[in-house]
Design a protein around this nucleic acid. Structure first.
Length: 563
RNA sequence: GCGCCAAUAGCUCAGUUGGAUAGAGCAACUGCCUUCUAAGCAGUAGGUCGCAGGUUCGAGUCCUGCUUGGCGCGCCA
């Protein structure tokens, strides 16, 4: 904030020794006077005097006009703002910046390549798989919001053992449908476990695919298309979109890998083991840990392992260039990615930056496809939308069916996205139906509801201001509580991007929605005591809605006009 | 066994570089709809921030050890 910089300048002019020391501005607690302040402990260290002494000295400096009063509370220095001036400046800023409010524009002219989701084409995705896509999608929205040119990549694992097994299991099926694949997948895995011949046949199929057998290639391709299209449809319902699809099979025979294998060889890192496999000793490439030291790149039959193709793909992504190369991966891929980093560095390149996230767990324990205790994303979405529909029907009995359906869809999707995104990526999400389908309290619908209430006020008012015609007049703490919170939004968005934590957006949006609710209950807008106060409140409503819409947009959540 | 991540109210989670009395929601209890949508608001109750040490003027936040949970550890992807 400009204001904070001005305060810093004022202090540094009188005390040059304090230059470059970061001040921790924070809102003052309820029992103290003032709007915000900071502790003087760090200054005390530099100036070698007590923080209480410094606070009182700094209090007597002359600050910008917008600061009405300074007051010390022991080692803390607090500032009181001219609330009307502050609110007028902030709200008019929001009204003019509109959908860009909150953006620092730091990414202008920069390119980002972001890979996310990239699930195996097999069955309908369960909710655990969606966390990758949701985090990735939100990061993509964040980067775009900050001005970056973002290209979202999806790596289609269109080959590998699991496709081979699926192809065999589906051999005598005609017109296979996507929803049937889950059962086939479970069956195929069970059969491979029980019958080594079946599994061996799978690897054989894989090898023929690698050697370009047209029949096998077609069978793989057909199966992958059924799965991929089915998965993308479900992911699309959640609002996930991709710019570029890269197919693993196109990295089978890659000139870059011939070069890479030569580099590994020269560094003495590549050897053939007693089974005839091509193995990479990562320790020779600078990998420190003993676990994960060896990695098989090629099977004895000459077919390649996943890592082999992924190295080629990663090199491809690096060659495409950009100022940032990101990938969202589950915590199960942490070691794998460390290995990848070592390999890419040994080839003289900079590896992508990985964003890891933890698993979604069920209250009863882990999800397991085999044991059948999975929550499919499609089911979760159906359930959430259904739940929302029931509420909309009660609320709007006379509304046309398709409009109600659309509102229910927006609310259901919003609830799902919010529930998963609001948890810090490095923590497990504990999923239970009751909490996930709760549309009260800390939830997506609660935020949407605030937007709806604002929309309703503005609808009844008949118009909404494009710009401020006159300065705001605040008469109530609830107005100020809301307005002052809006001022921190740009900082919150920037933190969310820097820490690659979408949860900060969720917390910010909730906080604003809560403050709006307080304001809504305590400050009548349309029936305010006079026109001046009414216009101020209208402006605050417009600004609050803008901030909420921008935050929801980053979270990939829409807000209906009514709900 | 080894490595990485986590542990905050009965439950689900915030707590962004260490700072003022640790915050929400759900569940429980009490109020508030002839007044802009009650998917809401106000209030009560609920905490040795896993345990034990340490660093610091100050620790939920940093360090060490332990406990519990998640994830991983060579022909799966």
């Amino acid at each position: 904030m400009e204001l904070f910089n001005k305060i810093r300048q004022t202090i540094e002019q009188s005390y040059p020794d304090l230059k470059g020391i970061n001040i921790d501005f924070q809102p003052t607690p309820e029992n103290q006077t003032g709007d915000f302040g900071f502790p003087c402990f760090v200054y005390a260290k530099v100036l070698k005097t007590s923080p209480v002494n410094i606070a009182s000295k700094l209090a007597s400096l002359s600050y910008p006009d917008i600061i009405e009063e300074t007051k010390t509370a022991g080692p803390y220095l607090n500032f009181s703002l001219d609330r009307n001036v502050f609110a007028t400046e902030l709200v008019s800023e929001i009204l003019s910046q509109k959908e860009l409010f909150g953006s620092g524009g730091e990414g202008k002219g920069k390119r980002v390549l972001l890979e996310h989701t990239s699930i195996n084409p097999n069955a309908s995705p369960h909710i655990g798989r969606s966390r990758n896509g949701l985090i990735g999608d939100t990061l993509a929205r964040l980067f775009r919001f900050e001005g970056y040119d973002v290209n979202v990549h999806y790596y289609v694992n269109d080959m590998g053992k699991q496709i081979g097994l699926l192809v065999m299991q589906a051999e005598d099926k005609k017109d296979l449908r996507f929803h049937e694949v889950l059962d086939l997948y479970v069956e195929a895995n069970q059969r491979a476990k029980d019958d080594p011949d079946f599994e061996a046949k799978g690897f054989d199929l894989l090898m023929r695919m690698e050697h370009g057998d047209p029949e096998v290639t077609k069978a793989f391709g057909d199966m992958v298309n059924i799965c991929l299209n089915g998965q993308l449809e479900v992911l699309g319902r959640l609002g996930l979109t991709y710019d570029t699809f890269d197919r693993e099979s196109t990295f089978l025979h890659d000139a870059r890998m011939d070069e890479a294998m030569e580099v590994f060889n020269k560094q003495g890192a590549l050897f053939t083991d007693e089974h005839g496999r091509k193995v990479l000793d990562l320790q020779k490439l600078g990998y420190c840990s003993e676990e994960g030291r060896y990695i098989v790149l090629k099977r004895a039959n000459g077919s390649t392992m996943y890592m082999y193709r992924d190295i080629a793909y990663t090199l491809e992504k690096i060659e495409r260039g950009g100022d940032m190369n990101l990938i969202v991966l589950g915590e199960d891929h942490k070691m794998y990615f460390e290995q990848m980093e070592t390999i890419i560095r040994s080839l003289g390149k900079t590896p992508p930056v990985a964003v890891h996230y933890s698993y979604i767990l069920l209250k009863e324990g882990k999800m397991s496809t085999r044991q059948g205790n999975v929550v499919l994303l499609a089911d979760f979405l159906d359930e959430a939308v259904q739940h929302a529909r029931a509420k909309v029907e009660v609320q709007w009995p006379d509304m046309p069916e398709d409009e109600r359906g659309e509102i229910a869809r927006i609310i259901g999707i919003g609830a799902v996205r919010f529930a998963i995104l609001s948890v810090r990526p490095n923590r497990n999400v504990i999923f239970d139906w009751e909490t996930a389908l709760s549309f009260t309290g800390d939830s997506g619908p609660y935020i949407q509801y605030s937007c709806t209430r604002i929309a309703s006020i503005l609808r009844k008012h008949g118009s909404e201001p494009e710009t401020l015609k006159s300065p705001l007049t605040l008469t109530h703490d609830a107005e100020w509580g809301l307005v002052f919170r809006l001022a921190a939004v740009p900082q919150d968005i920037s933190s969310s991007l820097k820490l690659k934590n979408p949860g900060i957006l969720a917390t910010t949006a909730l906080d604003i929605a809560r403050r709006f609710s307080v304001f809504y209950n305590e400050c009548p807008v349309l029936s305010a005591e006079n026109e001046k106060i009414r216009d101020s409140r209208i402006a605050i409503c417009v600004a609050a809605r803008q901030a909420l819409m921008n935050l929801l947009g980053l979270l990939g959540i829409n807000a209906p006009e009514r709900m």
